[in-house]
Computed example of a mutant assay.
Amino acid sequence: MRPLLLTLLLLCPTTFAATLTLELPDGKHDFSTEQLLANPKAQDIDVPADVSYNRTMRYRAVPLAALLQSVNPGDHLQAVALDGFAAELPAAPLLEEKGARAWLAIEEPDKPWPKLGEGKPSAGPFYLVWTDPKAAGVGPEQWPFQVAIIRYLKPLAERFPALLPAKNAPESAQKGFAQFQKNCLACHRLNGAGDSQFGPDLNLPHNPTEYFAAGYLKQYIRDPQSLRHWPEARMKGFPADVISDRELDEILAYLKHMAGRKVKAGS
């Protein structure tokens, strides 16, 4: 069992309750499903083009800002899911009350959400969703589902110096590091650094820029199944409306740069 996993408390065969843990500057807080549904700011919201379900979904949800009152816009948060997915989240967008707005969707015991696929669970019991995400360029990695913990952490550069490009790295690699944090670090580690338990390390023992033939790495990121059909694969593609061609080139520039900076985290 992973130490960060959410504890599901079975109340009867047809209902359940779950607990969300918040580790914030003002301390640790645990909220049950019932407590969150009873929050005075809870309301029904419609989410068009939901990232996980690829259709409009209706949720009972609480504005995430209402749960993060001790958090400042300059802070850094991390949402950890049951499967080890660890989304790195700058606090500022999560605290916005206009434009792109973050919500904690709560799966109601008597209204279970659809399964994410055959043999898979739903996105519940807690799911970070957005209304008007395009207003702030919110990407799919900022929609963590099956959330167990949301916690305040120091910035990535302080926690994991092994992720940093060299000070004299090309501008494209520096920008690529920012894109890597936003789009890749939720699933992958690099140089052993990162909190995710979801996907493989992208620099140890080998960097993908070292073993993918020219052009194929871009194709793989855009549509993994187009190169290697694997029904159980968990990586979704990143179309151009999620990561632009320029941003994808920046990610590849960062990875190529880091292939020359292999180092185990903490060394």
Rank of each mutant, 00 (worst) to 15 (best):
P239H: 10
A49D: 12
P109R: 00
P25K: 04
S196Y: 04
E158T: 11
L9E: 13
A17W: 03
A49L: 08
E108T: 13
K175P: 09
T7G: 08
G119L: 07
V129G: 00
L255C: 07
Q197L: 14
G215T: 11
G194N: 00
Y220S: 12
L4T: 14
D83G: 04
H188S: 07
G192Q: 03
W230M: 14
Y152H: 15
K264Y: 09
G27W: 03
Y211L: 02
A92Q: 09
H188P: 03
I243Y: 04
P90S: 08
P90Y: 02
A66G: 07
P140F: 03
A91Y: 01
G124M: 02
E118H: 07
G117M: 07
I251W: 04
A213H: 12
A233Q: 14
Y53E: 03
R189P: 03
A213N: 12
H206E: 14
L116S: 04
D241H: 13
G27Q: 03
L11F: 05
G119C: 10
G260P: 00
F85W: 15
K41S: 14
G124N: 00
R189C: 08
L248S: 06
L153D: 09
K236P: 11
G124E: 02
L67I: 09
I149V: 14
K28I: 12
F212T: 02
A81M: 05
A157Q: 13
D50R: 02
D195P: 05
P90H: 06
S267Y: 10
D44N: 10
L164R: 06
K98T: 13
A81W: 00
D223W: 04
F198Y: 14
L89I: 07
A162W: 02
K175W: 08
